[in-house]
Simulated assay, not measured.
Amino acid sequence: MNTNVLVSQSTDLERGDFYRKTYTHVALAILAFIGVETVLLKIVPEQMILAMFAQRYLWLLIIGVFWLASFLATKWSLSLNKSTQYFGLAFYVILEAAIFLPMIYLAMLYSGGEVIFQAATLTVAMFAGISAIAFTSKRDFSFLRNIITIGGFIAIGLIVGGMLFGFNLGLWFSVGMVILASATILYQTSKLKDAYATDQYVGAALQLFASIMLLFWYILSILMSRRD
């Protein structure tokens, strides 16, 4: 098999192998996230988890670290070095598990895991549906790039403003973020063949995993808000 060849310029066999490996790594990343999250729930003291809810400036620091790590992970995902791609994916899985820790803890208190299962089921169903649209539609989804970029900056501004000034972003913000995450998955999936070479399936998996976790976060937020 040729290496460093864009997926769009590869043979049907190479293209199929790329997608199979990409989605296998997405599934493995999700399983790794579940494993790391389970370990964190067992070893991190309850007081430390609760402190993350109370300290708004701590969350600003976490978000800052998260966006910096996201930038680095994106850079790593495009690396031609397989070890760098794996490092980026592993690093991002651990980071997501840490970010999700207070949310998962609260969801466990609310429903003993029922709401988490519901959110996970909806996330997987939406991801599968969006991916099917991306693969079967002949439309060009390039127009989504600017929408996603602008929407992302607006979202960051609202999140930071909410933490600084103490206002609740509410249900509709979560709905908007679900739409934004869905658009991101649609755009990324449709552009996988143009952005990655056939041996960059780990990096492609990292990009999809990040968007899936964003979608899961806000679906879980919506379901939990209905129980308040």
Rank of each mutant, 00 (worst) to 15 (best):
Asn2Ser: 04
Thr3Ser: 08
Asn4Trp: 03
Leu6Phe: 11
Ser8Lys: 07
Ser8Phe: 02
Glu14His: 10
Gly16Val: 00
Arg20Gly: 02
Thr24Tyr: 07
Ala27Lys: 02
Val36Pro: 13
Thr38Lys: 14
Val44Thr: 14
Pro45Gln: 09
Met48Ser: 15
Ala51Gln: 15
Met52Pro: 02
Gln55Lys: 02
Arg56Glu: 15
Leu58Ala: 14
Leu60Trp: 11
Leu60His: 11
Leu61Thr: 15
Gly64Arg: 09
Gly64Pro: 09
Phe66Ile: 01
Phe66Asp: 06
Phe66Asn: 08
Leu68Asp: 08
Lys75Gly: 14
Trp76Ile: 04
Leu78Lys: 15
Ser83Tyr: 08
Gly88His: 04
Phe91His: 04
Val93Ala: 07
Leu95Met: 14
Ala98Trp: 05
Met108Pro: 08
Met108Thr: 03
Tyr110Leu: 12
Ala120His: 04
Thr123Asn: 00
Thr123Trp: 00
Val124Trp: 00
Met126Phe: 11
Ser131Val: 00
Ala134Val: 00
Phe135Val: 01
Phe135Ile: 00
Thr136Lys: 14
Arg139Asp: 11
Asp140Cys: 08
Phe141Pro: 09
Leu144Tyr: 06
Asn146Pro: 07
Gly151Asn: 08
Met163Pro: 03
Asn168Ala: 03
Gly176Met: 10
Gly176His: 13
Met177Cys: 10
Leu180Thr: 05
Leu180Gln: 03
Ala181Thr: 01
Leu186Asp: 10
Tyr187His: 15
Ser190Asn: 14
Ser190Gly: 04
Lys191Arg: 12
Leu192Cys: 04
Ala195Asn: 13
Ala195Trp: 11
Tyr201Glu: 08
Gly203Leu: 02
Gln207Arg: 06
Gln207Glu: 09
Gln207Trp: 06
Ser211Pro: 08
Ile212Trp: 03
Tyr218His: 15
Ser221Ile: 00
Ile222Asn: 12
